[in-house]
């Protein structure tokens, strides 16, 4: 009986059409570095992160590594991953970060904080000098985020690094003019930072460019919290900013910068090793995962530059980016 039935097995592969978005906009490319310094280009995409079948992604998300001139705000667990001798000198710190694959150095001038060591212009200049002479990577310098103090120390730094297209931050809603002016005068890049609000982000870009900073010299930081600390807001804001840019909105079409590293290392999960529930797992792994997950999430929502802190996070995130870029 069975013999009389002839089986014909045919596998039909249905034609699956991948739905594609058609975008009209392009994120501007911003060149960081130059004048003897390595140049890194960020931005330039015409598609959402890694979706290169919908457009071009000429530059991968870039990894910056944060060094501080007063490292005391970082938990010991993070500092020991670099080594004590390294973190006490921003030059050596930057050098080691470069060896581990940093593409940009983020120097945060924590020592200038009025409630900390409250150091002045000279100390800030010397920290910048040290990093500039230790590595040839492009530099990002962020003040203590206290308006008057930022203005006081960032202006002379702009002068010092004239023409090297360093990134200076942060321009914020009520204090952007001085830093913006310093960027114009010395041809640097300004970070426009707003607190998780798409309207404000757009408005600040307009204000900073109105004052004379070309949109090709602006990075926007729409702010973020680490995993568990409101990262979902940041994901949504970054994504919406990127979508707006791809839809052709010129003002939001500037690269996005986020700092998942320092955001993570502020939080309890990355700081506390004792007296926490057992289910939290071992401290070392937990803290590291926290940073990696925060960074991964924000990169997928549209960040073009991320600042990281832990050496292993740098390695992990770089390899993730490489794989997703098909490299």
């Amino acid at each position: 009986m069975l013999d009389s039935i002839k089986f014909k097995l045919e596998v039909v592969v249905p034609e699956v059409e991948i739905p594609k978005e058609k975008w009209t906009g392009r994120v501007r490319e911003v060149k960081i570095g130059g004048k003897g310094r390595k140049e890194v280009v960020v931005g330039g995409a015409t598609a959402m992160p890694f979706l290169d079948f919908e457009g071009e992604i000429p530059n991968p998300p870039r990894v910056a590594v944060e060094v501080r001139d007063d490292p005391s705000g970082f938990p010991p667990g993070l500092l020991s991953s670099w080594g004590d001798d390294v973190v006490n000198d921003v030059g050596s710190w930057a050098k080691k970060a470069a060896e581990l694959g940093a593409e940009i150095i983020t120097l945060r001038l924590t020592s200038a904080h009025p409630e900390g060591q409250n150091t002045g212009v000279e100390e800030a200049k010397s920290a910048v000098d040290k990093v500039l002479s230790a590595v040839d990577l492009p530099l990002m310098v962020i003040g203590p985020e206290i308006a008057d103090k930022d203005n006081e120390i960032l202006v002379p730094i702009a002068d010092l690094a004239e023409g090297q297209r360093i990134v200076l931050g942060n321009c914020v809603e009520n204090n952007y003019k001085t830093i913006a002016a310093a960027c114009i005068a010395a041809n640097h890049i300004a970070i426009a930072k707003t607190p998780l609000d798409i309207n404000l982000a757009k408005q600040l870009n307009v204000q900073v460019s109105d004052i004379g900073v070309p949109l090709e010299s602006i990075l926007m930081d729409a702010d973020m919290g680490a995993l568990g600390y409101g990262i979902e807001y940041a994901i949504s804001i970054d994504e919406r900013l990127k979508l707006a840019a791809l839809m052709g909105d010129s003002v939001t079409a500037v690269p996005i910068i986020n700092h998942p590293g320092p955001e993570t290392w502020r939080q309890k999960e990355a700081k506390v090793s004792e007296g926490v529930p057992e289910s939290w797992g071992g401290y070392d792994e937990r803290a590291l995962y926290w940073e990696e997950l925060s960074a991964t999430s924000i990169i997928h929502s549209g960040a073009d530059v991320v600042t990281l802190c832990h050496p292993k996070a740098v390695e992990y995130i770089k390899s993730m980016i490489a794989k997703l870029m098909g490299q």
Binding site: N151, V155, D159, K177, T178, A180, A181, A182, I184, A185, I211, G212
Partner: peptide, 12 residues
């Protein structure tokens, strides 16, 4: 010029 210029741009 540069330092006064910055003060001029930032409005102070």
């Amino acid at each position: 010029l540069r330092s006064w210029g910055i003060a001029m741009v930032d409005g102070s």
